[in-house]
Design a protein around this nucleic acid. Sequence first.
DNA 1: GCGACAG
DNA 2: ATCTTGTCGC
Length: 270
Amino acid sequence: MAEGTQESGTEKPREESDDSLSPEERELRARWEREQEQLKWRLVEGDTEEWQEEATFAGLQRVGGLDLSFVKGDEANACASLVVLSYPDLEVVYEDCCMVNLTAPYVAGFLAFREVPSLVEAVERLQDKDPSLMPQVLLVDGNGVLHHRGFGVACHLGVLTGLPCIGIAKNLLQVSGLENDELHKEQIRNLQTGGDTFPLVESSGKVLGMALRSCDKSTKPIYISVGHKMSLESAVRLIHSCCRYRVPEPIRQADIRSRAYIRQNFPHLS
DNA sequence: GCGACAG
DNA sequence: ATCTTGTCGC
């Protein structure tokens, strides 16, 4: 190994075009950025389905949730899970857990390149096994248009699958003027009950997403943004209706099941 | 030294 | 993402 060329110990993900990046890293990011720009042309930000216009989402019967859980201390091996819940009952009607081997590293701003291939495969397995259970909307861990280049993992997955998609992040991605500063914390304190929201406005004035107090019991909001084929207003309304706890039930179930799968198959290695 | 950096 | 169980409180 050429130790002299390595940074001392800790890695530091930084913005593209940073001097500290190796030529390889820079080239990878440039390629990924070009791919995001290409896919972005196919992004649809508004409602496209009839059920989305209904006040009670009449016509919506299946909501999908996706998640990845990792083997402790292992960068590459993960369990990808796709669950489908009935709507509005939120009962699990389909579950698929699959061990996958991830090749791409996690780079902030490029999460999709690490996670999306496995998620698309999960959707394709469902298409093969029982297309009648295909969800009408997908809930994804991470952001949609609330992203450095307006194309987060939820957009990426939406465009590749053609399905309506919503991004749900548990932490604020601080991009284009959005900061977790005192003002933001004050806005959070002002969220009184489940369903309360405030908009996340970028410096240009565009609303990139919404902070949502997802249930009465949780003080910390979740961050909703448009993934694909769904307006922000519909997305927030739907997510709130899917929350028994802080994390929307489809994603929570995917999370629970993928972690259980890993515990079951990898008892205690590290 | 501390913060940022979705998962 | 992961490291981590019980415990204090409404």
